[in-house]
Design a binder for these strands. Structure first.
Length: 836
DNA sequence: GTAGGGTTAG
């Protein structure tokens, strides 16, 4: 699109060419026109055509009053005429109209700006602002100044103040315009500009409204400047409001100054100012975030003592605190209590509790206890059912969730959209997106309208499964229902798109978000940056980082972690370290993820010294390594064949109470297998069992693979049988490994048995699997079984590709199996695969 | 003015 300003200038002609004659169309025979015309001038004078601008202004008023602004605007002559004016001329007209007919001035200003894309000069903006302020239309005033400030951007305060001071001093409502300017700057988080205007106001003896101060305080609550503003309020003798206090408390909590927050709160209390619910909620939230749920609970009691009724915020804040602290039982009690007090738990409550279950799911046996709590009273109600569904889904038991949904339905409960969303999310997480889509239709037929959450879950689910087309259809479906994604759902969708193999689709979506600009926060950037980091595109990741900085968005620790990851992935360790410094310069404290990423970078390069140095550095910065950090260190040591050292670290982990998981063990086991030390590999496997750690599918893949390669195939078969008897299912990879090994050794019978088993277990057997087997059989000239596998493949509806056919054809020719060769040839011709 | 959710490491 062409820049409106340029468009305007292209059409602009010098005013000299202006002549009033063509404007006669604006005069109407309607008697109204006469009075309208008279109303703009005090003395009823004959039309004066010698001052063209004044004349035009009058005509505009006449037109607006007789046929309405819209229709005036539609007159091509009017448009042409107006488009020939420059900003200064429009400014004169608007200023003239301000005295004669201020309403017309505002209408003209807006029409030109919105319908013709006219760029007004600063004076026009302020003239209109003053008109609105005088009429006390503060919402409109805010809107206009908001747009003005958006346009002027950061650092514009000095220029605007200068103008206000020189051109508008003494105008009616000048103070309100100043005041609103502070408010708008601070809302836009242009704090420096806001403070600048505030200082000028002080010099002019204009007193800002307390709401303006509150606005500014809110945007400064993360910093100490908050106190300067607060002192300013006090010095000016302005009474702080409830809001002021709540913001200050929130600010102190956000700065982790809990004692100061408490002191401030008690000071107000001493002054007999009874605390507001919001202040108490804020304090609860602050203490919960610090992990002090006990203190938070006492504030809850304090509320009751003051006769304040806890609201949904109070409950959700406390429930969240308890969930994060692992006190699920209490969290659930509060959720019940909430309902008893007539407050329905909402989306936020359930989301929070679901997160609690998820966190608790890591503790074995916890769910059983929770289930008992939930079922303590025999008849579950809507809340309990929803909570139960949350719990089952979070531990991956979607089936039980469905059972409960059905039960709810049979017992005549009014189904809630939340239960469905929980189930949908569970299905999508396990990749069962098509079942999820069916459930969507079911909920719709039950008269429930899917909401933003529903669509976000499904869209990101389909994206993650690589079915972008379905996701796009759902997206369109959603928008057609007037449901528009917010920053959170955009994030969900974008990260879903990032899971698909091409980055282009994700980038296109990202670019479209950036273009509308409203919803792009740092997380959206983080998602995109991380995608580039994962594919090793350091350049693009850094480019996006630069964009963040240019836009004045504060990068987070995640932003830096992803960039550091990108550098490590490309083996540019020096670069990664430089970014660690950049991060510190921004005042962002490196996290455990930062250090683990860097250590992994060193470990990949076999740089043990680098790893150790980083471990010390972590210690110095008081960042405690976790089991992932140690696993990375073990990986590094294993890579260099330092097996005894690896085992030592494993012991250290147990000593420090950091439990190694399957991945930790798999790394060591694999390393032993690589050195053909199968004995030690199996000893570690036993060690896992001893520590109550169930080996994962990957563990058995590694072990089976090792047995097939270096050990006895018999042992692999034996392990397979043992696992089968224990009900442990081997992965497809492990089965394929065994099949290939049996083929290579010539045990066709066993290979076929395993192959059939693979299909029976529901694994998706592909052309690649068949090709791998047939290839090995052909290599050993096992013609009959090779043919038999080919037939099995054709029977199952899989056609061979050219590569497979050519390979078989060559084998058949070599061993003189001409009839088989001809048979294959005819098959190839039928399939359109003609040999050279 | 107060609550969660979308993003990072083995």
């Amino acid at each position: 699109m062409l820049n409106p300003l340029r468009q305007w200038r292209a059409k602009a002609k010098p005013l000299l060419s202006f002549s009033p004659q063509p404007l006669n169309f604006l005069f109407f025979t309607n008697p109204l026109s006469v009075s309208a015309l008279e109303s703009i001038d005090d003395e009823v004078s004959p039309i004066d055509t010698s001052d063209p601008l004044r004349f035009l202004a009058r005509q505009i008023v006449t037109g607006f009053n007789t046929i309405g602004p819209r229709r005036v605007l539609c007159c091509p002559e009017f448009k042409t005429l107006v488009l020939s004016l420059n900003a200064k001329q429009v400014e004169d007209i608007i200023d003239f109209l301000r005295e004669k007919n201020p309403k017309c001035a505002v209408v003209l200003f807006n029409l030109l700006k919105n319908d013709l894309g006219f760029q007004h000069c600063r004076i026009s903006w302020f003239v209109v602002a003053h008109i609105l302020a005088k009429k006390r239309r503060f919402n409109k005033l805010r809107e206009v100044l908001q747009e003005f400030v958006d346009h002027e951007g950061s650092g514009s305060a000095p220029v605007l103040c200068e103008l206000l001071l020189k051109r508008f001093r003494g105008w009616d409502s000048n103070g309100q315009v100043w005041d609103m300017l502070v408010s708008v700057y601070s809302r836009n988080e242009l704090v420096q500009d806001a403070l600048f205007v505030l200082a000028k106001m002080k010099k002019l003896n204009f007193q800002p409204f307390i709401s303006t101060y509150n606005n500014l305080l809110y945007n400064l609550r993360h910093t100490d400047i908050m106190w300067d503003v607060y002192n300013d309020i006090m010095e000016n003798g302005i009474r702080p409001t409830e809001y002021t206090n709540a913001i200050l408390i929130d600010g102190l909590c956000k700065q982790y100054k809990m004692e100061d927050a408490l002191a401030y709160f008690s000071e107000k209390e001493r002054k007999d100012i009874s605390p507001s619910l919001v202040s108490l909620n804020t304090l609860m939230s602050g203490f919960c975030k610090m992990g002090f749920t006990g203190v938070a609970k006492s504030f809850f009691c304090l509320m009751l003592k003051y006769g304040l009724v806890p609201d949904t915020y109070s409950y959700n804040i406390l429930i969240n605190g308890l969930c994060v602290a692992g006190s699920m039982e209490e969290a659930l009690e509060f959720a019940y209590d909430m309902e008893k007090q007539g407050l329905e738990p909402d989306n936020i409550t359930y989301n929070t509790i679901a997160k609690g279950f998820r966190l608790l799911g890591l503790v074995s046996g916890a769910w059983k206890v929770m289930q008992k709590v939930l079922l303590r009273e025999l008849d579950p109600d809507l809340v309990k059912y929803t909570l139960l569904i949350c719990g089952h889904c979070q531990i991956g038991n979607t089936k039980e969730g469905f059972k409960l949904l059905k039960e709810m339905f049979l017992r005549g409960f009014q189904m809630s959209i939340i239960s469905y969303n929980v189930l949908l999310s569970s299905l999508c997480k396990s990749g069962r997106v098509h079942e999820a889509k069916k459930l969507l239709h079911e909920m719709e037929s039950n008269g429930l309208n899917p909401d933003l959450t529903t669509y976000s879950i499904l869209i990101s689910g389909f994206c993650r499964q690589g079915e972008v087309e379905v996701a796009i259809l759902l997206y369109k479906d959603m928008c057609s229902k007037q449901i528009f994604p917010n920053s959170f759902s955009h994030g969900a969708i974008l990260s879903g798109l990032c899971e698909t193999d091409t980055i282009n689709v994700a980038r296109m979506y990202f670019d479209s978000l950036v273009k509308i600009d409203l919803v792009v926060d740092v997380v959206i950037y983080n998602i995109m940056i991380d995608k580039y980091a994962k594919i090793g595109d350091v350049g693009e990741a850094v480019k996006l980082y630069m964009q963040i900085i240019e836009k004045g968005i504060m990068p987070t620790v995640v932003t830096f972690n992803s960039i550091i990851y990108a550098f490590c992935k490309m083996g540019k360790l020096a670069g990664a370290r430089r970014w660690l410094e950049v991060m510190k310069v921004h005042g962002i404290v490196p996290s455990i993820v930062t250090y683990t990423t860097l250590i992994n970078g060193c470990s990949e390069q076999g740089n043990t010294n680098g790893m150790l140095k980083l471990l010390w550095e972590m210690e110095a910065e008081a960042v405690e390594p976790n089991s992932i950090t140690y696993t990375v260190v073990i990986k590094g040591l294993c890579k260099q064949g330092k097996m005894p050292e690896s085992l030592e670290i494993l012991d250290d982990m147990y000593c420090k109470g950091l439990l190694p998981d399957q991945i930790t063990y798999n790394i060591i086991i694999q390393s032993f297998c690589r050195t053909r030390d199968i004995r030690n590999a199996f000893l570690l496997h036993d060690d896992m069992l001893m520590h109550n750690l169930q080996p994962s599918a990957a563990t058995y893949n590694i072990l089976i693979d090792a047995l097939c390669q270096y050990g006895e195939l018999k042992d692999a078969d034996w392990l397979h049988t043992v696992l089968q008897n224990q009900g442990v299912r081997l992965s497809k990879v492990a089965l394929t490994t065994m099949i290939k090994a049996h083929c290579a050794k010539g045990d066709v019978y066993k290979a076929k048995e395993l192959f059939q088993q693979m299909a029976e277990l529901g694994f998706n057997v592909t052309l690649k699997d068949y090709s791998a087997v047939i290839n090995r059989l052909c290599n050993r000239s096992f013609i009959v079984p090779a043919k038999s596998f080919l037939h099995m493949m054709l029977y199952n509806g899989i056609s061979p590709d050219e590569e497979l056919c050519t390979m078989m054809l060559d084998t058949f020719k070599q061993v003189g199996e001409f009839s088989s060769a001809f048979e294959l040839l005819s098959l190839m011709i039928k399939s359109g695969l003609l040999p050279d």
